[in-house]
């Protein structure tokens, strides 16, 4: 009885969210200021872009691929947006059009990068790992070249306001996550995505457009990168060619901790979002303790490893629960 309910709790999608909550409460006495309103707002600010990125990554992981170029895509989108919007002698300096054009250009850039990734993987048949590893290099190089490695500041106030309060960012991110979750779990397109990653050959037999589905996953991931770039750039109040540089492990970890399989076919947006929250809570608490960067990295690595091990354990439990049925 106890064991049954314990394993049910372990298998629930909300387990990771619960874990984040327990961690937060458990660490609160040891970490001063962890639960202060200021820090909670800060926590939301760093968690929201990560949730969006984890959602994009999950869609790609579901197809059995991976997008390593996502953080470089964030940097490139940021730089493109900055170049269009900045008041310092850039294209649309001071114009009222600066912000809408800039945001659209960022989204278009992200989508285009995703499309190129998707085409290379689905049509070109190049392994996703290679395509996006190369993409990571090329996009980073491009972002640095475009800015001569200097950040671009003086962005329109309306744009900066997106991250001015956590409320606005939340109002942007939450609908995106909800729509993503519903599309994946309740629509034909979502069913295609799950099927393609599990067994592409079988998917082809039942008439699923395999290549198109894979391509769309990469495009969606690109758009998510652009959205995260908007949030991060606004928060920083400047566009930077090294934006999001250290986030790649966090993104993949959030997705995997949230129950996404690296082998494709299994994953949920809800899980990825909860995974992102857990990763952010851990990072934030370690930052607050005032450890050196090296120790933060070590501790974070250990925590993510533990979470991944726990996930492996959950998968075995799931297989067992299914097998005995």
């Amino acid at each position: 009885m106890v064991r049954a309910s314990l394993s049910r709790a372990l298998l629930s999608d909300y387990f990771i969210l619960g874990l984040a909550g327990v961690y937060l409460l458990g660490m609160a006495p040891a970490v001063p200021g962890l639960l202060s309103p200021l820090n909670l707002a800060n926590l939301a600010e760093i968690a929201l872009p990560l949730m969006v990125l984890a959602m994009g990554q999950t869609l790609v992981l579901m197809t059995g691929g991976i997008d390593l170029s996502t953080t470089s895509n964030v940097a490139l989108c940021s730089v493109i947006g900055g170049m269009i919007m900045s008041g310092a002698d850039e294209v649309l300096a001071g114009s009222a059009l600066a912000m809408p054009v800039g945001v659209l250009a960022m989204l278009a850039t992200g989508a285009l990068v995703g499309l190129i990734n998707g085409l290379s993987v689905a049509r070109g048949g190049i392994p996703a790992f290679m395509v996006t590893l190369i993409g990571m290099l090329l996009l980073s190089g491009l972002a640095v070249r475009l800015t001569r490695s200097l950040p671009i500041s003086d962005l329109p106030d309306a744009f900066v306001a997106i991250s001015g309060t956590a409320g606005v960012a939340l109002a942007v991110v939450l609908p995106v996550l909800v729509v993503g979750h519903l599309v994946l779990s309740r629509t034909v397109a979502g069913a295609w995505l799950q099927s393609v990653g599990q067994n592409a050959a079988a998917a082809r037999v039942v008439g699923i457009p395999v290549e198109r589905t894979v391509m769309l996953a990469y495009v969606a991931c690109g758009v998510c990168s652009a959205l995260a770039a908007i949030l991060l750039t606004a928060r920083l109040e400047s566009a930077s060619p090294v934006l999001g540089q250290r986030m790649l492990l966090d993104i993949v970890a959030a997705s995997i901790i949230g129950g996404t399989s690296l082998f494709g076919g299994r994953g949920t947006i809800r899980g990825a979002a909860f995974g992102a929250i857990l990763v952010c809570v851990v990072t934030n608490s370690l930052d607050l303790v005032g450890l050196t960067f090296a120790v933060v990295m070590l501790s974070k690595g250990a925590v993510i490893l533990a979470a991944a091990a726990l996930d492996a354990f959950r998968s075995r439990l799931l297989a067992k629960a299914e097998g005995s049925a």
Partner: peptide, 27 residues
């Protein structure tokens, strides 16, 4: 090239006929 091994029985039943279960054009 038949099974979606880790999907449910329902999904494996329905996968070739999703269009018929779709309620609207959004799928």
């Amino acid at each position: 090239d038949g099974l979606f091994a880790i999907s449910s029985v329902s999904r494996n039943f329905g996968i070739a006929n999703l269009g018929a279960y779709a309620r609207n054009r959004l799928g």
